[in-house]
C-alpha cells in the first residue's frame, strides 16, 4: 500500500516538473526562464531523494546534496549575468 502511494506521489512530482518546463519553453522574458530552472531544480532534489528511498541506497542522497548546492550556483550566475555582468 505504502509503495503504491509513493509511486503516485512520484508521478505527481514528475507532472509538476513537466508543468514548470512549460513555463521554461514559453518565457517570455529570461528571468521567467531562470525561475522555471530554479523550480525544476528544487523539485528534482526531492525526486532524487525519493528514488534513494525506493532503491534503498544512502549514496543517492549525496547526489541530492551536490545538486542542491550547484543548481543554486547556476541560478546565482545567471541572475548576476542579467543584473550587471560577471
Amino acid at each position: 500500500m505504502a509503495d503504491q502511494i509513493v509511486y503516485i506521489a512520484l508521478l505527481i512530482i514528475a507532472l509538476s516538473i513537466g508543468i514548470s518546463m512549460f513555463r521554461f519553453v514559453k518565457g517570455p522574458s529570461i528571468p521567467d526562464r531562470v525561475v522555471a530552472f530554479d523550480t525544476a531544480g528544487i523539485i528534482s532534489i526531492s525526486v532524487i531523494v525519493v528514488l534513494a528511498h525506493s532503491f534503498g541506497r544512502l549514496i543517492y542522497v549525496d547526489v541530492a546534496l551536490v545538486y542542491g548546492l550547484l543548481s543554486f550556483i547556476g541560478v546565482l550566475v545567471a541572475a548576476r549575468y542579467l543584473d550587471r555582468g560577471l
Binding site: 518546463m21 521554461f24 529570461i30 526562464r33 531562470v34 530552472f37 525544476a40 531544480g41 528534482s44 545538486y67 543548481s71 547556476g74 545567471a78
Partner: peptide, 8 residues
Amino acid sequence: LAAGVMGL
C-alpha cells in the same frame, strides 16, 4: 539555461 536543465 536549457543546457543546464538538460544536465539536471
